[in-house]
Design a protein around this nucleic acid. Structure first.
Lengths: 228, 228
DNA sequence: CGTTCACTTGACCAACATCAAATATGGTGG
DNA sequence: CCACCATATTTGATGTTGGTCAAGTGAACG
């Protein structure tokens, strides 16, 4: 299951990406009858008024909010296999779900209910982890902690190759997620590279010595994620 | 409906407050048949294994996590009228619910289901707001933003007197909630007092000029909260 | 090849943390 | 009512983290 080529995300275009674009769905070889496709930067949640749920097949998205003065906060990342919660979005766009790369998704079927619920639980768990990151961890810890989470989640759906995985995120997206400036994200990454803890190269991340990283960042593999 | 006298919260005792204490329930004049009582610092969630829900009658609690190195993150405050979520706590204590003052609570009845769900939605909304606070706002903004949230929530249950309300929180609790040091919380409060924006005196908070505070802190009154 | 966007780096500064100590404040027993 | 204790608040001095501004590099794309 190869994911789509990652496409860069123009942050300037994102702010006014109120117009979503659904590309033509074409059957292809995918076993899914109704695959929906979205372009990077597309806002994909608001259209789901009916309260139905989408499951991501490939590509990344995020939940975010934009403040009146332009500051952005990313709440969580949505990865292949995740179910996109679209309930509750009637309550005025305090959150938006935005594609971070090209995306494929399908409607969740009724026989997937347990999976959908499990996904929702994990998502809530991630919100708490993310709050700890931003409230208690230093910049270096935050980056490592987030990378470990991404590793674990991608590993679970078979998207990790050894200790390396693809991350279609610009440093600006990292900054908006972790509550840091782009410049400081950059310096932090350089540090991690210098100490040979994490190798980041054009969308590819390699975690050396996972154990050490876990203890440095107070990362605790979440029990819930092992269910199922 | 006068709330209980607030009791101070000993942070040191909190960490090891694994033992909850349920005081004797006495009928008193309260109209509730089965009122449960908790002392300040008591951990109240873990005992609810059945997945039933408690509704707070008086007193404050919080959801929090303690990191292995002792750092604490408070996720949200639970106020009178709120429903304490106790589902999902089987998933190993990644969160604890702790009383911040003396507390009274009752089991939620089955005819309260819509209210319970509404409370859960609001709680989720608060988690997002809190992430924005910690990720994007400055110290001054964070404090104001939080105080505005508390004001709105207390106002909804009739616990605001004019522009003044009681807050049974130490500055350390504020610090743990907002991801700041106690010292800096203190200095920030002094600033707010100096500029005559907020008056804080022994557990009482008065917000002068709410409009200005809202715009300073990027506070947006949440539409969801007006439902019901 | 010029444009755009992401990444990188340096210089500088503001926000916030840390350490230490002094000063309330509230609850207690006498 | 007072003295005492523990905890909370306040303040100063000082250091660190991370933000801002600005400029430059590099890579992708038409």
């Amino acid at each position: 299951m190869e994911s789509d080529a990652y496409q860069s995300w123009a942050p300037s275009s994102l702010a006014e990406a109120r117009t979503f674009q659904v590309e033509e769905r074409e059957p292809r070889r995918s076993p899914w009858s109704r695959v929906e496709r979205y372009a990077a930067g597309a806002q994909i949640a608001v259209i789901q008024a009916g309260g139905s749920q989408l499951r991501l097949l490939s590509g990344w998205a995020c939940e975010m909010r934009i403040l009146p003065d332009g500051r952005r906060q990313i709440f969580t990342f949505l990865l292949p296999g995740d179910v996109v919660e679209t309930r509750g979005f009637e309550s005025l766009g305090s959150r938006a779900i935005v594609a971070l790369s090209r995306l494929q998704a399908v409607r969740a079927e009724s026989d997937e209910v347990p999976w959908v619920e499990h996904s929702a639980q994990q998502r809530e768990q991630r919100l708490y982890d993310h709050m700890v990151r931003m409230g208690q961890l230093s910049a270096k810890e935050r980056v490592i902690h987030l990378l470990l989470e991404l590793y674990d989640r991608l590993e679970r759906v078979g998207l990790v190759d050894g200790d390396t995985f693809k991350v279609p995120l610009t440093q600006e997206v990292f900054a908006d997620a972790l509550g840091l400036s782009v410049v400081h994200i950059n310096r932090t990454l350089r540090c991690l590279r210098r100490d040979d803890w994490v190798v980041i190269k054009s969308g590819s991340v390699t975690l050396k010595n996972r154990r050490k990283l876990e203890s440095v960042a107070c990362y605790r593999t979440d029990e819930l994620s092992k269910v199922h």
